[in-house]
Design a protein around this nucleic acid. Structure first.
Lengths: 193, 193
DNA sequence: AGCCATACGGGACGCCCCGTCCCGTTTTCT
DNA sequence: AGAAAACGGGACGGGGCGTCCCGTATGGCT
């Protein structure tokens, strides 16, 4: 009974220590030895819980509050999306957690287990939530019936991830507004009449 | 005189060997020892040319034909963009070079030198070329005067990179068409009259 | 309360590989 | 032909992942 408690405590301690160290030195220089030492724990105790350094890191980053990113429904679809996108960028797009999220995605590029877990535990739920909110807006008549719902999430997220991962430009509220404006107010051709 | 030639030959050989090995075992398992051995070269000879494994890999991937991605100008902006996007996806979005490009971007997440070089040598030129083509279309009256030119490249590329790096879904011509359709035909709200 | 299984901390170990150094040799330029 | 540079090969230091082992302690079971 209390065993579970103790075990859970140690699991928490290890994840928190890994997160602390990652924030200090980055994922690339994060070592299991250092985590074990600072957590006051044997390496076996870590490897009994996670099969690799990468998956420990994933757990540490994701379980560190990726909550609070659910969409509200105020009736204004653009305002609701802006709020969630802003929160997401504040959380994952800049220090302290931004670099860790970048490293996590970097690791996912050559580690299928990390890629799958990241998708399953964060990306997919987020996409589903966005999709549901947009669908509601469409049913309320705020969007055209032929609005490409499945594409919307990618059109909104893609540019943000592009800046985060490729050009490494800052994710400002102004940029979020430009993306929203483009997707929802249209960038279509308007040949002057 | 012939020294340059010989030196250049060896540089070519090393890059090609690195590329071959990377295609066989992936960047994560690529070792400088293996490159040196297969190329019949001492490790010093490699490190005399590149300061690190990561930058050798970047050179190997980028110099391996990232050409042929310039925009034509047939007068039809959407068709021209579709052609370039299709070629880019065929080249960088699937085997054999897709995984290497993914690894390169992954490495860039925790290696500022790689990130900077990737931007300078590939992303920025590509963006500039796209921007120029779109600007020409605007001046020809195919696009509205207030079309957000700077954003366009990111709106078009972002979703493709999102699929490549995050969800790892295939980059099909159909998807490219959906993105083009959304950006240029507009996804804006059309409350029924 | 006492016992046993399990988890534990700590440390040693094998393995791999990056990047540097060195040496004897070949190649190139003068 | 002779000096200077580049070269191949191999040894080396350093670091870290993941495994193994051992003596200990902690908690569940009777």
């Amino acid at each position: 009974m209390n065993a579970r408690r103790r075990s859970h405590d140690r699991t928490e301690t290890i994840m928190q220590t890994a997160l602390d160290l990652a924030l200090e030195v980055g994922y690339a220089k994060l070592s299991m030895e250092a985590v074990a030492a600072r957590a006051g724990v044997g390496k076996d105790t870590i490897y009994r819980r996670w099969p690799s350094k990468a998956l420990l890191f994933l757990d540490a980053v994701l379980s560190s509050r990726t909550q609070g990113l659910e969409h509200p429904d105020t009736g204004d679809i653009v305002a609701d999306l802006r709020q969630v996108m802003t929160r997401a960028c504040d959380l994952l797009g800049r220090p302290p957690w931004g670099p860790l999220y970048q490293d996590l995605i970097g690791e996912a590029q050559h580690n299928p287990e990390v890629a799958a877990a990241l998708n399953e535990r964060f990306i997919q739920p987020q996409a589903a939530d966005t999709l549901a909110r947009i669908k509601a807006a469409q049913e309320q008549g705020q969007l055209a019936p032929d609005f490409d719902l499945d594409l919307a999430f990618e059109l909104l997220s893609g540019p943000l991830y592009f800046r985060l991962l490729i050009t490494h430009e800052p994710l400002t509220p102004a940029y979020i507004d430009r993306v929203l404006q483009a997707v929802f107010a249209g960038m279509g051709p308007r040949p002057q009449p």
